[in-house]
Design a protein around this nucleic acid. Structure first.
Lengths: 134, 134
DNA sequence: CCATTAGGTCGATGACTGTCAAACTTGATA
DNA sequence: TATCAAGTTTGACAGTCATCGACCTAATGG
């Protein structure tokens, strides 16, 4: 068989359990907001490894877990590749206009900032850049 | 003279300098989100001391400072009283739909949670509740 | 002038979180 | 089977932040 979903389940939250606090906490991080924007612009499932974010794989895994547990993305495996999609309908029903507003804002943010990668947009947050040596 | 604004200036941010990161960071805190909601529901300037939030005056001052520096509220003194208002127009122009979406979500959040004060809504964040004795 | 009222500032503190490296798991492939 | 590729998990670390108490400032009113 070719593109069949394998096992390895994820703890997806039910649509009615999506909490505002969790959604905002997820979207406040620039890296995660960039992931959401790229997902919204693609309108096709994207593998975790092909996002334009400047962090290590372990940090990436952390961000995707936060987004999934907040109810913002849905994930499923195809072979060793994990594909991501936005839970647009669920979010629009729970918090109408919120996702669109943030995505629109993030788009303009990304367009205005010519920073070559997504995570460098807007400075603030993500203090790890200050880790000089070591 | 009666209701005239006194000195004591505040560092209000220019409308074009309102940053998405700052706005989201401000709105991610339940106490601040409650302040914004109460302000949106009142449609009249409210004094800092008359908000329904369960924190000390110093913590309250901190939250109002964050909101002001994010560009979400405008403040001005009248005597010793500091009045607050939402910067609706500025925010709507900078990030259309964002404030409304968050306020709507916060309203339903507050309506669903019968918690007698605002800061107890939604659990998460605000870990200070765990400070038992001392 | 003194008390009161409204609020701000200043550390200190505890909790959370974003980051990384290292070691591990799982499916595909040579 | 051995290897590789894609992600995950764990532990450590450093930075940020909400919170408080204590003290200070400014305007008002007796």
């Amino acid at each position: 068989m070719a593109t069949e979903t394998t096992g390895r389940i994820n703890d997806h939250v039910a649509a009615e359990d999506i909490a505002l606090q969790g959604v905002l906490e997820a979207l406040v991080d620039p890296v995660r907001r960039s992931i959401v924007r790229q997902l919204a612009d693609a309108e096709r499932d994207i593998a975790c490894g092909t996002f334009d974010i400047n962090v290590t794989r372990s940090t990436s895994a952390h961000h995707f877990k936060v987004l999934r547990r907040a109810g913002i993305i849905r994930q499923h495996y195809v072979g060793t590749v994990k594909l991501n999609s936005l839970r647009r309908a669920d979010l629009d029903r729970a918090y109408p206009g919120l996702l669109d507003a943030v995505i629109d804002a993030a788009r303009r943010e990304a367009a205005a900032e010519p920073g070559r990668d997504a995570s460098s947009a807007q400075g603030r947050r993500s203090p790890a850049v200050s880790r000089s040596s070591r």
